[in-house]
Design a protein around this nucleic acid. Structure first.
Lengths: 332, 332
DNA sequence: GGCGGGTATGTAACCGGTTACAGTCATCGG
DNA sequence: CCGATGACTGTAACCGGTTACATACCCGCC
């Protein structure tokens, strides 16, 4: 009801004590007389007092917020990641402060700079920035953990092990008897996209050197993949498997094949990457990445770093697991 | 590089000016000599200075952050909502500060209290709280906008028009020749769930008074709906349409029907609510809610309110649109 | 009775910005 | 030549917490 909310001095006055005592009670400090504590709590209740977070931040230099910088805020990947981040953050009394970031390196730097003084640490996911841009954008002197970022060894980093994932899927496709696999790659500058593309070439060269290993340039979008498949069909290019760099493209491919009346998995197998929830429903074979767990672990690590108990920065690679479903093998 | 980052006084010293001038330049104030401005900017650049957000908040009583309180942080609904929120927020220079909230009214109050002094406004979505709990939890004196909350007329509120949506879908099912429609309701205390359930009863009573209008108690979970459908089949209950309170349950029902070898939509039609991305892939008929737009509009309104230009609080209802797909009508 | 030591409390400086108010200086009209 | 006016800049108080340090008090012991 009060026009302006109560301050610690109001509470002190109401309790006939000094601000120091009030502060001590509120922070659960050691030496306070039980009676004093009671008087303070009573006054707090009576005034409906809530400490001002900005003032507290200013004097303690801690905000209890952690910045989360992401390239885009949509899709399953984002929501799963946030879920993990929030779980870990709120377990330790932190709030996630969100910021989306657009492709540009300069804008990325601004987004991060704007968080200075607002957060105690930064969790950054920037698969679209190269190492130099990233290094330039990251603020100095702020605990930072990276997720899916390019080479940067001054900070702890989490990465999906794309190479291992691609290898597992290619092995699976070959084991299913596929010989002519087409890879649909993701956005050109994207780290995951290029790792997956390169791994595909290498693994094919190693495991099936005599087979073609065609690669089409996609962009992680469903519609694009559909179009590419239609072109393949129109050009009469032979193939018996499509391995898309992510699930959305795999679904686009699937749709295009079905519309063309092509039997999946009979004539063509389809595989994706990420295991978005959709995949299970559509029985899409894919590589499962524990995104929620990734978010939680990255956040845990960030909090350790902010609280000064963390070992040296390192890479942590998460190996995805093969989810072999109906689009690569007939159910029997 | 500096151990501790530069303050405005460091900048003032470096530029041989007073803090007031520096502050004026940084805030784009009126009266500053061009030369002065240049000296300040030069010093800022040299020192790599970024203003401390906490200090600024303390003296201006504005944080440029807005609190987003949500019941859970997963699924498409969440990511779409956040997408809209972030788009509107960053367009106006605000950061979303996230907090998930568990069912309990007391915990909800704590979650919101913890945001006091950290945010300039609050966007709350709490479909699981009743009006009294909600009123108790909301902090006073902080601009607030509600999304999908129960009756509360002191704040601006956005709501999905469940009644209108249910009516559209029931009309559609009847138009498709369905006569024996079963509704699978959502979680008991949930606002959307009960509105959809009640609307179903009413609309059926109005449009098809002679037909049965069976209602089963579900919980928004896919598995539960599957089980309920299996029970219907086991008990030989006649029905030719399932209208689930959300898409996930519709999908569970769909799966159970397919496993039982029942032709959809031939023998039984299936419909959901929400239009999650999955729905399109599985050709599920459903009601489309523009969640992204909802988030953006709610945020815009909140910002207007925070900046003191907003008309009286009111309700805004968003009418969902019918997405008639393959599970209610044979493709022809 | 005086003194050491522990406990409980108060005072005031400080965190890093913003801004009201007070100055300084040059210009200009009378 | 003086005062007024306007353009620019500086000083210091203030926002609301935290906390180092000082102080007051009570106890037990020699």
């Amino acid at each position: 009801m009060a026009k302006t909310s109560a301050t610690i001095r109001d509470v002190a006055r109401a309790a006939e004590l000094s601000v120091a005592s009030v502060s001590r009670v509120l922070n659960g400090k050691d030496n306070v007389h039980p009676d004093t504590r009671e008087r303070v709590l009573e006054a707090v209740r009576a005034l409906g007092y809530t400490p001002n977070a900005a003032a507290r931040s200013l004097s303690t230099a801690r905000t209890h917020a952690l910045g989360v910088v992401l390239p885009d805020l949509h899709g399953e990947f984002f929501s799963e990641l946030m879920r993990g981040i929030d779980r870990a953050a709120s377990a330790h009394g932190y709030f996630p402060l969100l910021s989306s970031m657009h492709a540009d390196g300069v804008l990325a730097g601004q987004a991060m700079a704007a968080m200075r003084g607002r957060v105690d640490g930064l969790l950054v996911m920037a698969p679209q920035l190269d190492a130099a841009d990233l290094a330039a954008a990251l603020p100095t002197g702020l605990p930072t953990v990276l997720v899916n970022c390019q080479g940067e060894d001054r900070h702890h980093a989490f990465r999906v092990d794309n190479r291992a994932g691609v290898r597992l899927m290619v092995e699976h496709l070959l084991a299913c008897g596929r010989r002519n696999i087409v890879h649909i790659a993701g956005i050109e500058d994207n780290l995951d996209a290029s790792e997956r593309r390169d791994a595909f070439s290498e693994v094919m060269a190693e495991l099936a050197p005599d087979q073609p290993a065609r690669i089409l340039q996609g962009d992680f979008q469903e519609a694009t993949a559909g179009r590419l498949v239609q072109e393949l069909l129109a050009d009469d290019v032979p193939f018996d498997a499509i391995f898309a760099a992510n699930d959305m493209m795999a679904l686009g491919a699937l749709q295009a094949l079905r519309e063309a009346g092509i039997d999946v998995p009979g004539r063509v197998a389809v595989a994706g990457f990420d295991d978005v929830p959709l995949a299970r429903f559509l029985s899409l074979s894919t590589m499962r990445v524990d995104i929620d767990g990734l978010g939680a672990r990255a956040t845990e690590r960030l909090i350790e770093e902010m609280e000064g108990r963390a070992d040296a920065p390192a890479f942590e690679r998460l190996t995805p697991g093969l989810m072999a479903r109906g689009t690569t093998q007939a159910s029997n």
